[in-house]
Amino acid sequence: MERVRLDCRGSTLVILLLILSVIFLMGITALSLAVTNYKMKKLNSELKKTFYLAEAGTEEAYIITSDFVIEAIDYAISKVEELEETKRESDENALSEEVDIIFRGAFKSFIKGNCIDVSPNTSLISILKDNKSYTIYRDGYPKIDPKITELEEGFLLEVKSTYVKGNINKAIIIKCSIDIPNYNYCILNDDFKLGDITRIIEWSIER
């Protein structure tokens, strides 16, 4: 009786092709995961960079505000000194009351840019809106949108800083209170701190 011999050479080739296919698919999957991971890392990096640049806008706006408030105090003090020069013989109590009125009025006028004896006569809002005031300003960003509200005892300043890169948009908003300082406090207090006058009261990310 003749025996039938099985030829296994064809099946070996099929198994080899299957193994190569599996290895190829694993390589494609690993490459796809690597590309996805790279894109996620790049996106995360861009998100952080955009956020930090938007935040830098608010930080610089706060520094500009603080410097402007110092100039407002100096201006108000100079107006009081002018008053004292012209009224040396006046009643001390009456002069004290007038000093407070002059100081407060001069401080507010400087913040609002209403001082005709100052050149250039610029308001805080105008300075904050001027792109040239910011060292981080590049290619139209960050966009700074300041708003100021006058209160009885000072001002409420709101600054929105927006940075856009591609499809990524980040906006940071800070609110600052600017209190009208007391003349004697500014002159006589050795522990005078600008943070007692200008301070951030709210910080938020626009959703």
Rank of each mutant, 00 (worst) to 15 (best):
L33P: 04
G27H: 02
I23F: 05
N182H: 01
E158Y: 07
A30F: 06
D91M: 04
P181H: 08
E82N: 04
L156S: 05
D117M: 11
T36N: 15
N44D: 12
W203H: 09
D67R: 15
I64Q: 13
I200G: 05
E81K: 09
N121C: 08
I205C: 04
M40A: 14
K79V: 06
I180C: 05
E81D: 13
G195F: 03
F51S: 12
L157I: 03
K42C: 00
L47Q: 01
M26G: 04
S11C: 10
E98H: 09
I125V: 09
T135N: 09
E81P: 08
W203G: 10
D179V: 07
I148D: 09
T122W: 02
I200K: 11
T29E: 08
A61P: 08
E60Q: 12
D117Y: 09
V14K: 02
I200L: 08
D100N: 08
D67Y: 14
V35M: 12
K49I: 05
Y137T: 12
T65V: 06
V118G: 04
G166T: 03
T122M: 12
N114R: 15
F107Y: 04
G27K: 01
Y183A: 05
F68G: 03
K170W: 00
G154I: 12
S21W: 04
S96W: 04
K147Y: 08
S45Q: 11
K132I: 08
E92H: 04
V69W: 07
S204H: 05
N114D: 15
K160R: 07
A54D: 00
E81L: 13
T122I: 14
A106F: 02
T149N: 10
V35K: 06
V80T: 13
E150D: 09
D139F: 12
N169E: 15
A54C: 00
L18Q: 07
K165A: 02
D190W: 06
V118P: 02
Y183E: 01
R5M: 05
V80F: 10
L156Q: 07
K129L: 06
I168N: 05
T58W: 00
I148P: 11
E2W: 04
D179F: 06
E150F: 07
E46S: 10
